[in-house]
Design a protein around this nucleic acid. Structure first.
Lengths: 240, 240
DNA sequence: CGTTATGTTGATTCAGATCAAGAGCGGTGG
DNA sequence: CCACCGCTCTTGATCTGAATCAACATAACG
């Protein structure tokens, strides 16, 4: 049984800011509709107008930019609990797209609603600012990865970030859902699919991780963090 | 003679949002102090606490991340007219540093002041949101560069972006100040200084640009944009 | 079950890194 | 005014991490 959408939103936003009774009520009084989207479907299209922020209830999505020569660069993965497009509240054209990686359940939060929340509820404004900052910090680290880390380090770093974020959003255990194809990882890491495959294989060979059936198991968290020189402080995730 | 700081801020912010008389007054009533900083000095230190947002009146700065192995990745250049650190309003620790590239004049806008402006002046809140989004869009494009563009394209793309942004901030003409060393460009582009040098040389050889005495001249803007496949729409810069 | 997606493996190539040595060029001080 | 020092840039030779190319092996899948 899925809890009421408002409850999920409130719970998630509470992780970023202390919400008052009025903050919570402002959310509860809105009626949300859940959209079910299949895998590999556009949620928002590059070049289109930004109308809403997709909140992900279940499944995975990614934010990407298409280049004129047909290449793709993924600039973020979105997991359950992410507000995936807070970046375009006041912009008239999207310079990136968002699409699902797996089948997903999302809630489309219309920008006018968010703007209203932010204008009238300081606690919510604060939460949305924080989430925006977090997205920015993640992007900054993505630049560091593509700019200055080796293929091995980048790959390990992405795994670390994803697992850490999923944990913050409520996933527990050392085995998490991991439905990404090597082509998708390659577009995120700025590598070729073949090379990503080799990097994963080498991590598997040293018994650091295991990936099978769309599941990622961290066999040796210490080793993985070390391979990535992963320092989670940029995620600014206070303990839950 | 430099105009009053408040005037400069108002003029700049007006490019991002329509400011009311009250918005302008809120700015004018604050007393600002200008700090003069030499070249290569830290403005905010990685790992420190975010206290203020530096606004650049004159000169150049950069935002960067230091890696454990001593490497550096520059994630943004800041030019006159930039609010260089809107990203950490609500964060407790900085995961990046900001330092000058040249001697610079900056105004340190204390976060409490900005928060107050944003809480009470919708026009200013809007402007600061927009500026934040812009920074995010620039970061996204930086990922695309390091992830998927060749050395040649990246280099040309960075030049395009910098010139375009300086124009938006008021610089005119085909020759602009360009005080960056090849080592700095390399840390921004995810390349080695030697290779950046070669890329610039080849752009000079085709008479696309010229760099000398800290000045960059665009000799063939069309050619440069083409070499970068530069599409400025991500900058969301409405005509001035 | 064929059929299309994805993943694995190996051989080869190439863009960019690395290494090394000069060359220019302010700046500083004797 | 010149000798020297420390940067930054240039140039060339060599090396290497990741890309490319090309089969083949597995899944997943209607």
């Amino acid at each position: 049984m899925i809890a009421d959408v408002a409850d999920v939103l409130i719970k998630r936003l509470s992780q970023f800011s202390v919400l008052s009774e009025r903050d919570r009520f402002a959310i509860a009084k809105v009626s949300f509709t859940v959209r079910e989207v299949e895998a590999d479907q556009d949620i928002v299209r590059q070049g289109g107008r930004p109308l809403f922020c997709p909140f992900i209830l279940e499944g995975f999505a990614c934010r990407f930019k298409l280049l004129p020569d047909g290449q793709r660069q993924i600039i973020a993965f979105h997991v359950a609990g992410d507000f995936s497009d807070l970046a375009s509240l006041l912009v008239d054209r999207l310079d990136y797209g968002i699409m699902t990686v797996t089948a997903a359940k999302i809630v489309a939060l219309p920008y006018p609603v968010i703007l209203d929340w932010m204008a009238t509820q300081p606690g919510l404004a604060r939460a949305f600012w924080s989430i925006g900052q977090l997205g920015m910090a993640q992007l900054g680290e993505w630049v560091v990865s593509t700019g200055r880390r080796t293929a091995q380090q980048r790959t390990a770093h992405l795994l670390c970030e994803l697992v850490e974020r999923m944990r913050h959003a409520g996933v527990t255990g050392d085995t998490v859902s991991f439905p990404f194809t090597q082509a998708e990882l390659a577009d995120a890491l700025g590598l070729t699919p073949v090379h990503v495959g080799r990097m994963l294989l080498s991590l598997k060979a040293e018994r650091t991780i295991d990936i099978s059936n769309g599941l990622l198991s961290i066999l040796n968290w210490r080793e993985l963090k070390q391979a990535a020189s992963f320092d989670p402080s940029y995620l600014h995730l206070r303990p839950r």
